[in-house]
Amino acid sequence: MRAISEKWSLRGFYPLERVSDYLGGLGLLSYGVARCLRKRWEGGLILEQMERIGVRSLSIVLLTALFTGMVLALQMGNYLTRFGAKPYAGRILALSMLREMGPVLTALMIGGRVGAGITAEIGSMKVTEQIDAMRSLGINPIQKLVLPRLLALLIMLPLLTVLADLVGILGGLVITTFELDIPADFYLNSIIQFIRFQDLFSGLGKTFFFAFFIAIIACYNGLEVSGGADGVGRATTQTVVTTSITILVSDFFLTKLFLQL
């Protein structure tokens, strides 16, 4: 990547040089992971990561979804009543949860909680030379550390999103029933009749991209740590910031893409 930045005369313009190096590093790591896909998959390591990434994140993801659904219902109830459109609250809420709020908020939560954890763990291994020790024992750290985390995220993020969607809609149900006096069966029937498979597919489709971004960014930042505990702290912060921005920016382009499908 250094060569590319030199070719395009980025040398000397420090921010662009750093961005090009960073993107190049992410690309090389992705290529390394793709090469490892052909090798033996470590089922035990993947399951362990699924438990750490998925099961242990359940409470934070569901709590976020529940209150998001409840807040959306409150806001919609307030504004839709003014236009006499209160009965549409359920449909709009479900659409918001399935297409946007569910996938994006779940990804942001996982990016913060899991992404930071991955960077801190791999970064600590890097500064204590455990990554070099793995390599010196002829063990590929990408295969042992990066691939299981990536695969676990690719499996668990969509599953967590489905649960978050459901809990968000249930949170909306509680508020529309008790605050807006919309009957529960009407709320649920209106959602079932209105929502199409594409709405669910559009939201879930994004989660695979988000999972990939979180895993690659978190692992790369961990593997690139230098400078001891201070470096681990900086890399962890960088992971939270970078994954959040990447999720939000890519969400725009993915939304455009999925709307055209």
Binding site: E129, R135, G138
Partner: peptide
Amino acid sequence: EEDALTEVRKKVAMVFQGCALFD
């Protein structure tokens, strides 16, 4: 390449300054 070095590294082991044991 890193993959080819696996065989080499079985022949040449290393003891790190900080021990680098997997904690």
